[in-house]
Amino acid sequence: MALVWYALLGLFVAGYLVLAGYDYGVGLLLARRGTPATRRAGLTALGPFFLGNEVWLVAAVGILFGVFPTLEGELLSGYYPAVAGALVGVILVTAGVQQRSRPTGPAARRGWDRVIVVGSALAAFGWGALLAGLLQGLPIDADGHVAGQAHLATPFVAATGLALLTLVAAHGATFLTLRLPAADLPATARLARRLLVGALAAVATAAALGLLSDRVRAATRQPLPAVLLLVALVGALVAARAALRRGRPGVALAATSAALALPVALVGAALWPAVLVSTVDPAATVGVTDAAASGPTLRLLGWLLLPLLPALLGFQAMCWWVFRGRTDGRAPVYW
């Protein structure tokens, strides 16, 4: 039972990283020099999906609170700086994207665009740092308290934050190859291919630092799946680049989406059956089953979610279907 819920939590977190990942990627690309029209084109491409993407995060935290209350408290407060930083980023992107076109002056729009860039960078880096922090464990003592936040200050955490940043940038550019008018395809694809090289380098650096870190090695319970998933991640990035070269943006987006979902699976699999590994007291390590709520709560939420899940996914799919295809002169413009 707890395993099913754990997988569902993973689904929502991964869904968030994949969907909001291209929001942040497109946000980061606003940092490039360009005309107001090119910046607007990127945001129009996000358009109808933007609001439906960030709710995956809200839902993930909801599941975390309802189904894994113990985990919620210790996870968020134990990695306070990473979570708070990512949260600030999410807020800046949410506010920036929705408001940047409300003023008509170009200077105000440029200012909001900078807000979006900073927010996207913070969000991607913060979530990356959180994933890395999970992989290296944290100093939980016997009462479930975490002393200080210095445990986050390691090169591995920084490298993983950067790796996620480059991953979302490449993912965002790949998303644009699929959404912008066909005339823009060659230029966008070139950009995406270059960003994918950067992402590969960043992922390799983070992986090397992780393999060298004895905290990561000590915290990992399932080394084989972890390494296999890492290889799959690299494979997805290589495949995305190849697909772009062959002019298959759809395949490329599927591959970069996989690249953003795989780190979540990697963290879940590497630590299984634990979720929070204590570096100071093995008895304080939190396992998936101890973190879960008790039977009645799980049953209640299960009965509720079972019929609801198809509706949730169905309405999201409706949104993708209705607004599929490339943007053109007739695409609705609002952000």
């Binding site: 909801g62 209350p69 709520a293 709560t297 509720l304 609801l308």
Partner: peptide, 12 residues
Amino acid sequence: GAPLAIETLVAF
């Protein structure tokens, strides 16, 4: 946590 979880899924 239960009503909050329900809220995020059913509503937001």
